[in-house]
Amino acid sequence: MARPKEFDRDEALKRATAVFWAKGFEAASTDNLLAAMKIGRQSLYDTFGDKRRLYLEALARYQAINLANQLALLEAEASPLAGIRRMLLAAAEADPALRALGCMNVGATVEFGRNDEEIAAMLAENEAELDAALERILRRAKAEGEIATATDVKGAVRFIQATWRGLKVSGKAGADTQSLRQIVDFALAALSRDTGRG
């Protein structure tokens, strides 16, 4: 008769996600993971498979939570541009300890590039979901006169995504809150410039 698992799987995955987020895949040793998850080696293999499968599950967990938070912030304001600002400010005004971790998606992109097809597909799918949400918000901003009717929406989506990544990388590099807020202010001014709002 199989012994019941003596740990909370979700909690163990949460702890593994924190390790991978801080260290990346390669630098996170199995011993690091076991210590953080508070489980034995056999439990890791029996429950999650190998280190790679654990990483993929941790990355998926991070993406689901991060994307849900981004979408909630985008929709939290009546004004479309205010929603975009709120999402970007969340990166700028995060606790310094959290900012120091950067973004797990950006970390995966830097570590793997396009060399790992499975991870690249996960990153592309996550980006596409945020792209679609940003496009909807920007089209609303156009309709409501918050950005110029001539604005290239898809180009603006790329600009916002790049700004988000830049905030995450700058935060990890030690930029302070005021500096990051300035980036957000500049980005929003650029988006609204043609309407005279910037």
Rank of each mutant, 00 (worst) to 15 (best):
Y55R: 01
P96A: 01
V110F: 08
G24H: 01
V110K: 09
R86G: 02
K14C: 15
V110W: 11
L98E: 14
L71R: 09
A60C: 05
D46S: 12
G24C: 06
A76H: 05
N105C: 13
T30V: 15
Y62N: 08
F25D: 03
I84R: 10
A90E: 03
Y45R: 13
L89V: 11
I39R: 01
V110Y: 04
R85H: 10
N105S: 11
A58T: 10
A27E: 15
A108N: 09
E75D: 08
L71C: 06
P96G: 01
A91K: 11
G107Q: 03
T47A: 01
A35H: 08
L73I: 04
L98P: 05
F48G: 04
M87S: 13
K14I: 10
L73H: 08
T17C: 12
Y45M: 12
F25T: 06
N69T: 13
I65F: 10
A94V: 12
K14S: 15
L67D: 14
A12M: 04
G107P: 00
A76Y: 03
A22P: 10
A16P: 14
L44N: 00
A64E: 09
R85K: 15
A12R: 01
Q63Y: 15
K23N: 02
Q70D: 14
A68S: 14
L13A: 05
K51A: 03
A97I: 06
A78I: 11
S79N: 03
A72L: 04
Q63H: 12
A91C: 14
P80Y: 01
